[in-house]
Amino acid sequence: MLTKRIIPCLDIKDGRTVKGTNFVQLRDAGDPVELAMRYCEEGADELVFLDITATTEKRKTLAKLVRDIATHINIPFTVGGGINSREDVSVLLENGADKISINTSAVRNPGLIDELAKNFGSQCVVVAIDAKIINDKWTVVTHGGRTPTTLLTIDWAKEVAARGSGEILLTSMENDGTKNGFALDITKAVSKSINVPVIASGGAGTMEHFTEIFKMADADAALAASIFHFKEIAIPDLKKYLAEQKIPVRI
């Protein structure tokens, strides 16, 4: 049986793992390669690395880090942050990334999704969608949540799936960093409206939150950062708990 995936996310700034609340107040959370290896050992199903510096000058450093990660871990990993072109993607894939994620650049230029899917295959294209409630509607925001758009989350999810995105990483900016649980309503609505896997992100604080997102919102995978980095929840404990809740997980 296909299992539900648990995905730790590592936000990277200047080659270090950091974590903040609602994308601000960053705390240092250690060396990304060491942390990645620890997660592999603990049974993480995949990893996501999000480079939040992502200036042109730093991109070379990122490629080096990606190569370092690729030579150390034996599970799939996605790299995102500041990817604007086919060339950016090519460099990351050549250095061993399995998938890349795009966010703001996809909103700015939706054709980029088609271009990447055509050239590298949908399996490596993850479109990250940051969603926030604006005027009572789940709206797409960009630039790490700072810039609102006119796109409705469901419409955008349908469009990116149609353009060839292989997976959708859906982050609720209302929930991110709160530890009060995932956004069940929008995750369920997105998952129902498209036929590609949805990774739910933002708000994980307890093991029960993971049960909810899988059982009540049909997420295919759940992503979290700080609860794993700071060892508030250990992945083996979480998976054991989910198995007891009759959720298929890889143990």
């Binding site: 129902k192 896997p197 049909d218």
Partner: peptide
């Protein structure tokens, strides 16, 4: 079943 996404992505036995 629309719950079964295509492609299959993830860990299976």
């Amino acid at each position: 079943d629309p719950q079964l996404k295509i492609p299959q992505i993830g860990w299976n036995t």
